[in-house]
Design a protein around this nucleic acid. Structure first.
Lengths: 204, 204
DNA sequence: TCATCATCGGCACGCACCGTGCCGATACTT
DNA sequence: AAGTATCGGCACGGTGCGTGCCGATGATGA
């Protein structure tokens, strides 16, 4: 409208990128409520067909939009101190997960997933499970270096770590702050850490 | 229609009960998808006004409907063995939480809560927090009897226990089975239990 | 007993969004 | 330059929302 010289009506992949960006922008502005296909089309100055040609549903669009910004360097650092590395990652991912545009999009997907088991599976596989896997990789290395006990079920431990944070973020009204993360890591290290207990080669 | 002698058009509180029951029945049949005010009205043979006069929104109706069946004796037993009592309760509440009619109603509330922060707070306060509080009470008694260490942050421990189960039930595609509960309790007891470590009055 | 009145079920409305079909215009392809 | 796929715009039927109006029905009090 204001500047039509900047809108040469892109096509194909270029339009796809613009649509994903428009979805994220709209989500950041209006939240999940008010986030629907017609709104995205209006926002992007696009016919609804242009969206439906690319994604079969709002959920599919949200999945791609989330992928676009969920490249948040999810890889844990490895300083040799597993607790410090987990702490840094948890504190960093908190605002990223709750704030715009990820928060509203994530909430939208969770909402729609409640009525769609297939979407729930996809959401779990493409995002929740990825976070768990990254966490599992990091704590597995810590197990190899002796920071964590040998016989721990780390797969489940990773689920508890991530699950607790997701529970806070998405289901409760609490915030994930430093105190939360420290308490979570206290519990984690008390359950699985080798410090302050009989070592793997020690007595008992 | 089929038998009008059994439908003497109740009023007031009696109708309210019938509407809540109809909501639960419908939720059990069609799940969260297809659960809306018009469907409840049709199912109950009722005008929409009769529902709107009682509840301002679908979410409010679902909250009351959930309260109606969420009286599932949530009180933990106290056999003196905190792990066994938690195990029993977790295994019992699993099917109750996932299956009909609680599961679909719960999913519906979670879905709507994603677009409504006030509903999210109400949901957390009236249901999630209640479960956490019951758990906290039970493990606090265990702390007093010496089953759990003195300096543990049990409030957070209760959140982790419940949060992990809710994460499984509502966000992941995994099931909460005996193995899950046992792993969760392994972690819990390893982190907070007094068995197998220096006792509160012992050395260290 | 009978009049009164709040509540009831039924119907219809405007609104919004869904997913689809059609149209002429526009940007790429050959 | 000709051909073609994609584009934006518009309109449609369908569905659920929340509200208003209607006559009927069940409770209430004179």
């Amino acid at each position: 409208m204001a500047d039509q010289s900047a809108a040469p009506r892109r096509r194909g992949a270029a339009r796809t990128d613009e649509l994903l960006q428009a979805t994220l922008d709209l989500a950041a502005e209006v939240g999940y409520a008010g986030l629907n296909i017609e709104a995205v089309a209006r926002r992007a100055g696009v016919g609804k067909h242009t969206i439906y040609r690319r994604w079969p549903s709002m959920a599919a669009l949200l999945l791609d939009a989330l992928s676009r910004v969920w490249t948040t360097d999810l890889d844990y650092r490895d300083t040799g101190d597993v607790r410090a590395d987990l702490r840094e990652q948890f504190l960093r991912s908190g605002p990223a997960l709750s704030g715009p545009p990820v928060g509203p999009v994530y909430r939208g997907l969770i909402a729609e997933a409640q009525a769609d088991p297939a979407l729930r599976a996809t959401l779990h596989e493409r995002f929740l499970l990825t976070v768990e896997t990254r966490t599992l990789e990091r704590i597995t290395r810590a197990q190899h270096t002796g920071e964590l006990v040998k016989d721990a079920n780390l797969e489940f431990a990773a689920e508890v770590l991530c699950g607790t944070l997701y529970y806070r973020h998405l289901l409760s009204t609490r915030v994930v702050d430093e105190e939360t993360v420290d308490q979570l890591l206290d519990m984690f290290m008390a359950a699985y850490g080798t410090a302050g207990r009989a070592g793997p080669t020690g007595a008992g």
